[in-house]
Design a protein around this nucleic acid. Structure first.
Lengths: 133, 133
DNA sequence: GTATCTGTTCTATTATTTGTATAACAGCTA
DNA sequence: TAGCTGTTATACAAATAATAGAACAGATAC
């Protein structure tokens, strides 16, 4: 679970943890069913408070990325990468996509380069990564 | 300057203003050189404090989207949509793009659909909109 | 000139968020 | 039994978000 975060970033730590784990899921580094470290363990590894990790996990759970049981701990949901997304997700997501793409276009990136970069990222998700069972 | 914001959103008001204006620039609704309303005027229209609008404008200025003079007020930069983006922008932007695309893929959207939605958004930017001179 | 609008800056207050900290309880497991 | 775990509760300091009032200076309109 090599997970790097930037303590000087304006992005909250719990948000960074969430983002890195979501990327690891899309990546294939965290396969469906894979177990996440315990909040106390990950807090130790990252040298941060375990409540901050707990907040990130709770966010991932509320957004449907993981399941948390008292037994098995935090586990990547099995019915995610296969089935369709939650209702209403796609629309809300696309509006955020619109904002992000607008930023690049308004900064002078050509639509062609934007599309190419998006394709490059998606390609990096498609190529399977080493999973951590 | 029809600009809708959601006061119940978790996204700060000043950030929403920034986002909507960036989208209007990418959109073509705000052409290069176009003048933005004064902070007091926009604050009146949106029924919010003008300091909040000022914060949004200051953010747009620091990110290079607009120029602010005491004479002409806030104006969309002319040397943006033509020239290349600021140094180091593309890399930082792509890492944010990676996070956003990962979210969609991890939620179950196929890479094909993601790419199609990105294309759809970029297409909406390409088709010229009515500008507000 | 006077009045008005503007950007800019300063201070202040309230509410919320962020991160840390300590403690406790209950369930599982070696 | 002992240890690890998820979970919940409370507390605190720091930063952020939004509002508010006031003041100054430059530009514009009458």
């Amino acid at each position: 679970m090599q997970l790097t975060l930037d303590l000087d970033s304006e992005v909250p730590i719990y948000q960074q943890i969430r983002d890195r784990i979501v990327e690891a899921i899309a990546d294939g580094a965290l396969a469906a069913g894979a177990a996440l470290p315990s909040t106390r363990q990950l807090g130790m590894d990252l040298a941060i408070n375990f409540h901050t990790v707990n907040k990130a996990y709770d966010l991932l759970r509320r957004q449907g990325f993981i399941r948390i049981n008292r037994k098995s701990g935090a586990v990547v949901r099995r019915d995610r990468l296969s089935g369709p997304p939650e209702a209403g997700f796609a629309d809300e997501w696309q509006s955020r996509l619109r904002t992000l793409l607008a930023e690049a276009v308004a900064q002078g990136l050509s639509p062609q380069e934007v599309q190419q970069r998006a394709g490059s990222v998606l390609e990096s998700f498609a190529t399977p990564k080493g999973s951590m069972t």
